[in-house]
Deep mutational scan, measured.
Amino acid sequence: TEYKLVVVGAGGVGKSALTIQLIQNHFVDEYDPTIEDSYRKQVVIDGETCLLDILDTAGQEEYSAMRDQYMRTGEGFLCVFAINNTKSFEDIHQYREQIKRVKDSDDVPMVLVGNKCDLAARTVESRQAQDLARSYGIPYIETSAKTRQGVEDAFYTLVREIRQH
């Protein structure tokens, strides 16, 4: 089974770092803004072998026109913010609204991801993020692309959301 996953969120929150940590098991430290990259990885989730087709997208506003296209083809979405960047957390709402509009559905598989949880300088409390996820009816997972904490959990949870859909 193949799953088309799309990673969305503001610029600099760590979308590529999360994806590369999942696929290649290493942490990319330097920031190089993405336009669009796709990665494929075969994994076993709950005993089922599946192929993850992951689209890593641009957070930069100037590429926002490309969003409709990949939102149409994606089956599930990782909505990523950084726990030390309140603005990126506030941006999640717009991504969710755009996904709902493009998919013409209120019920699209999504996982809210709070990345950079290895950093002490948190400005978005776990509780705020949990409340937001609960209001959307989606899971919330904290990750660190640096330490790998929660990385597999985030992507695998999204696959489970798609399966249950």
Rank of each mutant, 00 (worst) to 15 (best):
P109C: 05
Y95H: 00
G12P: 15
L22M: 02
D153Y: 13
I99C: 07
Y63H: 14
F155N: 04
D131N: 07
F89W: 05
A129T: 11
S38F: 02
N115E: 06
Y140C: 11
T34K: 01
I162R: 12
G47T: 06
S135K: 14
E62T: 07
Q21G: 13
D107F: 02
G150Q: 11
I35R: 07
R160G: 11
S16A: 00
V8E: 00
V13R: 00
K103L: 09
V108M: 08
D118Y: 02
A65I: 11
I162A: 06
K116T: 15
I54E: 01
R148T: 14
V43M: 01
R160K: 09
V108S: 03
L5T: 02
R127Y: 10
V151I: 14
R134T: 07
S135G: 10
V111N: 09
H93L: 09
G9N: 01
A120N: 09
K100W: 00
I99S: 02
V28P: 06
R40I: 01
V108A: 05
A58L: 07
Y136E: 03
G137D: 10
A121T: 09
E125G: 10
R122F: 03
K15R: 00
T57S: 06
I23D: 04
A120Y: 10
D131L: 11
S16H: 00
E36C: 03
H26W: 06
L55I: 11
K4M: 06
Q128C: 05
F77D: 02
E2G: 06
T1V: 03
D29F: 02
I138A: 09
E61T: 13
S16M: 00
Y39S: 00
T57E: 09
V6K: 03
Q69I: 05
Y39C: 05
G150L: 13
V7I: 04
T147N: 13
G74P: 12
N85V: 07
T143C: 14
V44D: 08
G59E: 03
R160E: 06
E2V: 03
T49G: 05
C50D: 09
F81P: 02
V7M: 10
D46T: 05
G9P: 01
E161P: 05
L22Y: 04
V8N: 04
G14T: 00
D104V: 07
I99Q: 01
D29E: 03
M110L: 03
Q98A: 06
Q130E: 09
Q98I: 05
M66P: 14
N25V: 04
F27D: 00
S38N: 02
Q149T: 12
A10W: 06
G74I: 14
F27Y: 03
G150A: 10
D53H: 00
D153W: 13
T157I: 11
A120T: 11
